[in-house]
Amino acid sequence: MNTTSQNRSVAIHVSDLHQSYGSFEAVRGVSFTVAPGELFALLGTNGAGKTTTIETLEGFRRPTRGSVRIFGIDPFGQPPELRPRVNAVLQHSGLFEELTVTESIELARDLADDPMDTAEVLEAVVLADKARNTVRSLSGGERRRLDLGLAILTRPDVLFLDEPTTGMDPEMRRETWKIISSQVARGAAVVLTTHYLEEAERLADRLAIMHRGEIRVSGTVSEVVSQWGDRISFRLPSHIRSRELPELPGAELTIDVRGDHQWAVYTVTTGTDPATRTHHALLPLLKWAEERSLDLERLESRPASLEDVFLAVAQGDVTDLVDL
């Protein structure tokens, strides 16, 4: 890929980013790109380095190693070419407590070039009935919405959203997803961090899961999940011991204890075709059960969820970096 075409299709470029606090390395070799009109979700455990990565992209830190670029420009120190094109919702909001909602929006509007109308912003973030209240009096979720309103009103080409829906009720979270989607549809490159996996599943074009400063898994939601494997599980009949269970093609067996029962869990990861691999694993299992006249209780087969992958990453199971 030559530089020109790269610049045209890449808004955010992070390459082998390292970031240290003294001797502690908070980010250890993170790389990803985000295109205009694309939402990239950065997931991960607490302290994984998500906010640190975003702060570097926002231009508040110089990488200790590696590089970050926004539209081909180094964002450190917020250079004038980037300043009007970038905005963010910080993990914690920093607002003037004594201003009203309207005053806060008007201040942000006057500080920007060609902003959205005040009424438009109030409506978008559903704060019209709080317009005259001071920021101090807002609830946690309302503050979050005001913060998002201030970030989108400059119509940024690059938008960083660090846990934008934390503290919101489920309905408001869905409203917020619509706002975020509309920013992506408008052509903004969005980096989102969240601890709500459903949010990432709904919004992310691609995602990465970080743990201890590294990206452990990345790709589209379906790539991440399908590479993780489908699950076949059933309650282990009481007279069957685990070593009597059959081997299934492409599947790995684990025994789970839930309550008073043991469960057999097969994870189907390899198979010629991801679409039919579970079918090919199930057949011999059912045949095995029929030969022994067993009824497999609570037999279930489902694809892995993002949560399965996240938990595996969090427990440190994913030590080999998975590249898709």
Binding site: R8, S9, V10, D16, G29, V30, S31, F32, T33, V34, A35, P36, G37, E38, F40, F71, P80, R83, P84, R85, L111, A112, D113, D114, R155, D157, G187, D205, R206, A208, E214, I215, R216, V217, S218, G219, L321, V322, D323, L324
Partner: peptide, 22 residues
């Protein structure tokens, strides 16, 4: 090191020209 490469560029990536406010 893990690399997540960009998806295909979207149809509209024309960025609105923006002037920094004085």
């Amino acid at each position: 090191m893990t690399t997540a490469t960009a998806a295909t560029p979207p149809a509209s990536d024309s960025q609105t020209p923006r002037k920094p406010v004085s």
